[in-house]
Nucleic acid binder design. Sequence first.
RNA 1: GUGAGCGUAGCUCAGUUGGCAGAGCACCGGGUUGUGGUCCCGGGAGUCGCGGGUUCAAAUCCCGUCGCUCACCCCA
Length: 450
Amino acid sequence: MATVAQSIPPVKGTRDFFPEDFAILRWLTETWRNTSRRHGFVEFDGPTLEHLELYTRKSGDEIVEQLFHLTDRGGRDLALRPEMTPTLARMVAARLGSLPRPLKWFCIPRMFRGERPQRGRLREFVQWNIDILGTDSPTADAECILVAVDALRALGLTRDDFAVHVSDRRLVAAILAALGVTSEAIPAAFDLLDKAERLPGDELARRWGESLGTRVDFARVWDALAMPDPAALRGELSKSADAAAVDPVLARFTAVLGAIQDFGITEFCKFDLRVVRGLAYYTGVVFEAYDRPREFRAILGGGRYDDLLAMFGGKPLPAVGFGMGDAVLLELLASRQLTRAVGLEPPEVFVIEAPAETGVAGQGGTVRRILATLRRAGIAAEAGYEVQAVAKQMKRAAERGVGHVIFVGDETHSRGVVAVKNMKSGEQRDVAVDALLADPAGVIGGAGGV
RNA sequence: GUGAGCGUAGCUCAGUUGGCAGAGCACCGGGUUGUGGUCCCGGGAGUCGCGGGUUCAAAUCCCGUCGCUCACCCCA
């Protein structure tokens, strides 16, 4: 019987959004959208389908295994977009000369990844992207963090729920260098630091030794990165020959922290050099937000990527931004019972047609005229398709939570009136059909407010 | 691609020395023919994931298979 549902379920890692589910997703995306606008960002979008090469050029061929790729009839290799940055880079590069800078753009695309789903990771998901392009100001770095914090607060999360861990790759690199990691080995070190908390200790030590040799002890590095504030860097770097080279980086990072302070979100942030991000293209400040108990994966991640745009557009363009996916965030919000729904609001008015006495004409036509007039006037109105017992229809109206019920029945036939009932107060009065049709907003408003 | 756990009604699940498949929620109907969410009564619904084996008898035991979940790989 229900064989389709059984034999053709949703594709693994994708989700059916029933109205009550979609209402939660809408709440989330509209909060993202409103937050973006408050902070001066404009929305853009690009195609869901892109040339495969757009992704392989930056990341190499191995990424093909991790995305959905297909071939069109002309033999072109295409991919469902697994990330937004290449599309953004192309669009910006196309109009680089004419766009006023800086650019503050956001988007809320659906994205796809061809991997096995697991907790907080799906094959189709929604990700909010915030990017500021064309400025290397430390204020822009801090502003991205401000936007992220503001959105999470708008969703109901507090300083007890999450923290943004702020770091800078160049500072981490300086510490690694001071501890003896060669510059060639730094990318591999970043990669392992990014995985450090997910890998078992022995596996981590094995890979560390494999990539970096045994001369530099991982535990030593890990401890050094736990320093509580940037000032401690000087002590850590005192032995290093080129400690002075770090000063400009440190000064800029301090400026970012100062801007965070000015924005009033210091209590939501945490200095944490153990955050480096897995991607190779970050060039400076990087940050990730986590729930405080660290029960879930990272809620968001981002940072400065000053060299990436040049790879696509030819001309360099400094940039900073972050991405925040819906999967982990919705799990966190659900665990705090903070999820809300928008778009499921009940209609303001429910029109009930009472069964007519024998010999009296039905009032279906009047019901339909009232419905259409109310809706034209901007008042959401509903009615059943069949005439049922009034008690039954009242039950439906009450369950849906409508504000007003309009009764259409024999009095409508005999006296030209309907009864308008305010469901909250219980107050009910007769209103001429003509008056209702002439001024629906006045009647409904007058019956007890919208 | 690797490893572990789990598959019984739409949902959450119960169902052990193998013996006729159940509960709650949800849904639908009714509670004396024109006004409320509670409450009462009733109803539909499942090839117990699928296939094979053992047995007089399998949701239950054995083998296989598919699916889901979680972890790993990867993390944009």
